[in-house]
Write a protein that binds this DNA or RNA. Structure first.
Length: 423
RNA sequence: GGAGGGGUUCCCGAGUGGUCAAAGGGAUCAGACUGUAAAUCUGACGCGCAAGCUUCGGUGGUUCAAAUCCACCCCCCUCCA
């Protein structure tokens, strides 16, 4: 049984940007299980939280009774999507792309259910139907359906065509044809009738709708989700340390959790709608409660908890919370030796260092990028060791002063911690 | 292939022989204030404690002295063919 309210629910959450033939789409989804797909290109060996909105949307469709297909872009990843990109990108080698595709494919699998009968999910790789396609066949059978006149009208490539100092290669320009072909193929193979994606994908999606109509004489649909923006105009998903990845080997569960904890008030309720499965009423209640209470709102905590659990599971969440509690609310000196061992294991940033000056330790742990910066941090009163602020740039670390003779908890700034331990 | 324009520190962008580690803006970071917010103010923002050292697409050259001049090369853009 499918949920007839799906589109309406998405709309209420602010997740509906554009949809083709929305009334017909609504009807199309209402009665029965439909197949919906979303593509993810391997631009790194892990997805990052920018992909979370479409990824969770696939799951929303599945929960509503539809069948999701997550597509790993083994082929498209070799070409590079130019949509709204200011610059031409460097191509990655085939081996690298293949490796990344495999990793991405594994990650995608964690968000959708493969074992639920009629609407069990599928993960596919578009290289499977692209690799053997001969060039001439491709140009004759597929290329013939595309008008360059229409292609250059697409908003997604316009700036590249018009902007002074930039251009677009034929390779990247062909990207939308490849993606369109994916849609047509999935329609043929799996009766896929809906493609979703970020709003930057609208041009590629409509190209796919057109091609499917011409190639298969099928009406299919497209729907886009908002790209996540922050109220302060900053880039979503980046911190000083870099991108927030879904792979815990790249971004620890602790760092991941902290990222969400630090969400600005102006964004947090929107993010609850985007990134959690709490229903609209619950989210409204949280917002209302926060408004009436003074001090720190609870929304960030809920957001962090929900998203961390979604991406890293109960264990990952527990680990992240253990570290966070120890660092931000607990008394550090009350931690036992086992606690320190646990923090290390939980994925708290940590490294082995030699005894030496504090400056050296800050650089060795990455808390400062250079001796000069380290000194400046210390002089500014930004550094503390085991909970004690150190303001002397000449200070040194002696293992006799360490917790249990082997742990130094270094802190730079208000919320950046690092556990340094004796080898 | 021809003609013209351009490649500057994370980004944008000034700089056309010394006063340039290089204006200005953005981003980022730290401090104060706070709620591990926001806004605001202050400071930092190539490396080095410093003397100084290494940077302005690449390689050579001219000069006491080059991001700035010359030669060649690489890359990008625009127009023409």
């Amino acid at each position: 049984m499918t949920d007839k309210q799906l589109i309406e629910n998405l709309d209420q959450r602010g997740l509906l940007m554009q949809a083709s033939a929305q009334d017909e789409l609504n009807e199309h989804l209402a009665g029965q299980c439909r197949t919906v797909y979303c593509g993810f290109d391997p631009t790194a060996d892990s997805l990052h939280i920018g992909s979370l909105v479409p990824l969770l949307a696939l799951r929303r469709f599945q929960l509503a009774g539809h069948r999701p297909i997550a597509l790993a872009g083994g082929a498209t990843g070799m070409i590079g999507d130019p949509s709204f990109k200011a610059k031409e990108r460097k191509l990655n080698s085939l081996e690298v792309t293949a490796q990344w595709t495999e990793k991405i494919r594994a990650q995608l699998s964690r968000f959708i259910d493969f074992d639920c009968g009629e609407n069990a999910a599928l993960v596919v790789n578009n290289l499977d139907w692209t690799a053997d396609k001969g060039m001439l066949t491709f140009l004759r059978d597929i290329g013939k359906h595309f008008s360059v006149n229409a292609m250059i009208q697409k908003e997604s490539v316009k700036q590249r065509l018009e902007r002074e100092g930039e251009g677009i290669s034929y390779t990247e320009f062909s990207y939308m044809i490849l993606q369109a072909y994916d849609f047509a193929m999935l329609n043929q193979m799996h009766d896929c009738t809906l493609q979703i994606g970020g709003s930057d994908q609208w041009g590629n999606i409509t190209a796919g709708i057109d091609l499917t109509r011409r190639l298969n004489q099928q009406q299919v649909f497209g729907l886009t989700l908002p790209l996540v923006t922050k109220a302060d105009g900053g880039k979503f998903g980046k911190t000083e340390e870099g991108t927030i990845w879904l792979d815990p080997a790249r971004t620890s569960t602790y760092t991941f959790y902290q990222f969400w904890i630090n969400t600005a008030d102006a964004d947090v309720y929107k993010f609850l709608k985007y990134f959690t499965f709490l229903n609209i009423e619950e989210i409204a209640a949280i917002e209302e409660a926060d408004k009436n209470a003074q001090g720190r709102p609870q929304a960030q905590g809920i957001l962090a908890r929900e998203v961390t659990r979604l991406v890293h599971g109960e264990d990952g969440l527990a680990a992240a919370q253990r570290i966070s509690n120890a660092l931000f609310s607990g008394d550090i000196s009350s931690l036992t030796e086992e606690d320190f061992g646990q923090l290390k294991q939980d994925g708290m940033p940590s490294s082995a260092i030699e005894a030496g000056t504090l400056v050296e330790a800050l650089v060795a742990t990455g808390l400062a990028q250079s001796n000069k910066m380290a000194r400046e941090f210390i002089a500014n009163g930004a550094v503390s060791v085991n909970g004690v602020k150190i303001a002397d740039p000449g200070a040194s670390l002696n293992w006799n002063d360490a917790f249990y003779g082997r742990y130094f908890l270094l802190k730079r700034g208000k919320k950046l911690f690092h556990l340094a331990y004796c080898q």
